[in-house]
Design a protein around this nucleic acid. Structure first.
Length: 537
RNA sequence: GCGCCUGUAGCUCAAUUGGAUAGAGCAACGGAUUUCUAAUCCGUAGGUUACAGGUUCGAUUCCUGUCAGGCGCACCA
């Protein structure tokens, strides 16, 4: 790519050692001062112990390429680069000829992204939707950026919560029974499941055996139900891991590894893991004094299982209730796999507002808003775009009335409309693919058209940066700002005219812009619409 | 009490991770259309980035303190 070529020149001319794996990418930015800028001189000046401006001048003059019209050092030490129009036009044709222009070559780095990971004890709620939407997008972003990313979810299909589920269901079936279980699930869906089970087993006594039966049946039903919910949002996983399988196949090995390394000790009848050695507040119990295992050991086993499968980077997207949990799981991975990159992203709470009322969402209370209920009311595209527009680490206020009623609050229509406009232009100009376009023109003769072309260069670098810092909101932000340029240009200019040369220039740039929008929509999981029908809303 | 996160326009959020004049949308006001779909565009107004110090070429961003809010702090999962 155009910018990559220049970065390579900068790196080799100035003997920047860390410039190999595209390290220079982090020093580029896109402003009004050129097609791109770099502040590399500032950090370089520290290692060279020279004046930043001096370094910048050297950088600027080292850039000699036929593609570059001007490269200049300014004020404190920025270097601004402006391409000549021919080079930009060439890049426009590259964008148009490539289905996924900008995607990096695979660098053989395997990434595992885990998200949603819910108990099969109730409907999925809004945080699950948030994590799911973001996780899928992140997975595509990382694949585009040269990683081999896999999306994964973990099903906690054993343990107390599942037993509580069984007891809650059986309580609706058995005639003679104790009080409703203390930590039981009270949602109305429990009753529905009980009714379903009744058709197969009309009468069940209160017994451990039948609690298990109800738990197994309930789990199956809820899991299928959760899968349907995920499908409505287009959320999918490359792999499903079940806690029961981990316990069966990997638990003993994990415990042995930890004990062999001397990280386990006994105290007051319980077994502790020395997580404080790796920055945890206190050591954590893996076996209680009554001999029971805590949830912690299977979770470690699961993470070890990820590491064993050869992933170089492991990413967990967790709900806000896992805040205090991150340091201990990090510590356990440090014990045996210190070389693995391990990142935990906390997806903050989603608060649903409706007419300024706050909805509480808890599986226990039975009074919650599920993913499904949200999808019933609001176009999933709207939800996806809104969810992706915010930093995951920020709490998210979702106003259901705004999302539904005022379409102006929904930038997703803004970007989809930009795409639809371009599509209808291509149709009117009888352009099906890039072979219908000539790229033999010399210049843009219109700054705003050139600006759109220049904006397209930015796209890959926006995506790469998300792969590093997980700030997914940059993707929708980019789509909005590109769409703004498109809408503005469209409004000011008649695209298709009798002047064939000028028509072709415009179509060439807009075809490429449409391609970039499409790639970004697919990353976000937003529907790509060739036309927008007003009565749809 | 301890830990993590947050505090930016009236509201919801950005700001390319320490960069150039802090930007969008909504709400307010004024304008543009016999449309290649106005779900659009252009303009006006709105800010001591919670507060006080510090670090340096440069701070919304990093450090310290204060104030305010959210979340998490089990031999629960």
């Amino acid at each position: 790519m155009l910018i990559d070529d220049i970065l390579e020149i900068i790196a080799s001319e100035n003997r920047i050692p860390s410039a190999e794996n595209g390290e220079l990418e982090q020093f580029i930015s896109f402003t009004e001062h050129g097609d791109f800028s770099t502040n590399a001189a500032f950090s370089l000046s520290k290692t060279l112990k020279k004046n930043p401006m001096e370094v910048a001048s050297a950088l600027a003059s080292s850039i000699s390429s036929p593609a570059v019209l001007r490269s200049e050092a300014v004020k404190p030490g920025f270097v601004n680069v402006l391409f000549n129009d021919r080079a930009l036009i060439k890049e426009i044709s590259n964008i148009s000829k490539d289905e996924i222009w900008g995607a990096k070559h695979k660098k053989n780095k395997k990434v595992n992204i885990e998200f949603v990971s819910a108990n099969p004890t109730g409907p999925l709620v809004l945080v699950n939707a948030r994590a799911g939407i973001a996780g899928n997008a992140l997975c595509r972003i990382m694949n585009y950026s040269g990683y081999e990313a896999v999306s994964e979810t973990y099903v906690n299909d054993t343990g107390n919560q599942v037993r509580n589920l069984g007891a809650s269901i059986l309580h609706h079936i058995a005639v003679k029974k104790p009080d409703f279980p203390e930590n039981g699930y009270r949602g109305s869906y429990i009753k529905d499941i009980a009714e379903k089970i009744k058709t197969k087993h009309p009468s069940l006594e209160w017994s451990d055996e039948n609690i298990n039966l109800c738990a197994e049946e309930g789990k199956r039903i809820i899991l299928a139900w959760q899968k349907e919910s995920l499908k409505r949002f287009g959320i999918s996983f490359d792999s499903w891991i079940f806690e029961s399988d981990i316990r069966r196949d990997f638990l003993r090995k994990t415990e042995k590894m930890l004990r062999d390394k001397g990280y386990v000790y006994e105290s007051e009848g319980a077994s502790f893991l020395k997580t404080t050695l790796f920055n945890d507040d206190k050591d954590r119990v893996i076996y209680k004094s009554n001999g029971e295992m805590t949830y912690f050991l299977p979770d470690i086993a699961y993470h070890f299982y990820k590491a064993e499968r050869g992933f170089d980077r492991i990413i967990d997207i967790l709900g806000p209730d896992h805040h205090g949990y991150t340091s201990r799981i990090k510590a356990s991975l440090m014990m045996l796999y210190p070389k693995k990159e391990f990142d935990i992203i906390i997806a903050q709470i989603v608060t649903l507002l409706k007419n300024n009322e706050k909805y509480e969402m808890s599986k226990r209370s039975g009074d919650f808003i599920s993913m499904d209920e949200l999808a019933d009311e609001i176009d999933p595209d709207v939800i996806k775009f809104l969810v992706l527009s915010r930093k995951l680490s920020q709490p998210f206020n979702f106003d259901i009335e705004k999302a539904k009623e005022t379409t102006m609050e929904n930038p997703v229509y803004y970007v989809q409309y930009a795409y639809a406009r371009l599509s209808s232009l291509m149709k009117n100009a009888s352009v099906k693919d890039c072979s219908d376009i000539s790229y033999s023109f010399e210049g843009f003769d219109d700054p705003s058209l050139r600006k759109i072309a220049s904006k397209l260069l930015e796209f890959p670098y926006t995506v790469y940066s998300i792969a590093n810092n997980y700030e997914i909101q940059k993707l929708p932000n980019y789509a909005v700002s590109l769409s703004a340029l498109i809408h503005s240009y469209y409004h000011d200019n008649r695209i298709i005219t009798d002047d064939r040369d000028s028509t072709m220039k415009r179509i060439a740039v807009l075809f490429a812009a449409r391609r970039i929008l499409k790639i970004s929509f697919e990353m976000m999981g937003i529907t790509v619409k060739e036309r927008m029908d007003k009565n749809e809303v």
